[in-house]
Write a protein that binds this DNA or RNA. Structure first.
Lengths: 198, 198
DNA sequence: GTCTATATTTGGATAGAC
DNA sequence: GTCTATCCAAATATAGAC
């Protein structure tokens, strides 16, 4: 009897097919928005009948949830990957730029994560967890800048999230609001930082 | 033969029924969102079969367009109704407060006007016109404050629209971001006004 | 693991009678 | 002006054969 862990080819195939289905779903979302996803279409894209998808996901919502989860994990990964810098304000700046980039590079994903336009879809707690973790890192970053007020935290999510919202709503794919990130962050820091040294 | 303009009772009834249909549509939107509107349901709400609605609107999109138009007219009306004040900054402040109130008091309307979540729905030029007019007034208001930069204008729509977006997305019906309006406007004016006298 | 067959619901829209 | 009748399309999901 071998003690070597052997590959479970069955599980691998299963995971690969799940991956394929989710990838197909992202394709649809990118092309025609979240509302355009249907089991029939998804099945066709991976060479199956719609019914066969139920072998991989118990429902359409479960597919949304998986997409929601992996998007949040992606975002959290990017937050964690931000280079450590001496000035905490610089960290917030690169944070904001990264977040903006994340939001505008895929409006469909933005829609799924931040607009919740699917009736009756509530992400599971597991899918939501990475988002909360990311938000906690933002809060910590602001604290490092000397900003601890809860109102200031909300104002941060308001202005950064706001720029992204405007960009995606009014000029998806463009940069009219994206390029304002730096000056808006400067404005924010100037206003909310207790004592800005110069 | 009378020269008095007589009422066209037929036209009146027709207009009243149109009004009733649109009101029913708003009811649905407020309760379950834009996506929940269907001709069958709408018909049932006004005591008709879905098919009869086509006597009043040529399509479902036409209903959306009418809703879109009257919302923009409502908003424009509120902009025009803002009291004239000596300080242009005060005008921008009340403008921002009013806009925020407009956005959060009816998330369904907000969705229709600013998120465009209906696939294939593009508002007609007539429906869009009041919005452009309102935006022009905002631009003029900023100019009165000495702010003429296009980037500054975009930053204005970014931060005000952003607060509204955050409020509706994360805490519809609440005031966590609404109550930040004043301080965020202060921050904006401080930063973008050329020479703030004190 | 994927299929066929099917149930069920829901939707937008048209034709033509009254 | 509203109805009945109807069409057509699309959707989610289940049961059971292979």
């Amino acid at each position: 009897m071998s003690v070597v862990a052997i590959r479970d080819r069955r599980a691998e195939r299963y995971a690969a097919t799940r991956r394929e289905i989710i990838d197909a779903a992202w394709e649809v979302v990118r092309a025609d928005g979240l509302g355009a996803i249907s089991m029939r279409d998804l099945g066709a894209r991976v060479g199956m009948r719609a019914q066969s998808l139920y072998g991989y996901f118990p429902s359409k919502e479960a597919i949304f949830d998986a997409m929601f989860a992996e998007s949040n994990e992606e975002l959290l990964g990017r937050v964690e990957a931000l280079p450590t810098v001496p000035d905490p304000v610089d960290w917030m700046r690169s944070m904001a730029r990264m977040f903006m980039q994340f939001c505008v590079e895929d409006p469909g994903r933005y829609q799924l994560l931040f607009q919740r336009p699917i009736p009756n879809f509530e992400p599971s707690a597991e899918a939501l967890a990475p988002a909360l973790q990311g938000l906690a890192m933002v809060r910590a970053g602001l604290r490092d800048c000397g900003i601890t007020d809860e109102r200031a935290f909300d104002a941060w999510t308001g202005v950064t999230g706001g720029l992204a919202a405007q960009q995606n709503a009014n000029e998806p794919g463009g940069d009219r609001w994206v390029r304002l990130v730096d000056e808006v962050i400067d404005m924010y820091i100037e206003h909310y930082r207790p004592n800005t040294p110069r």
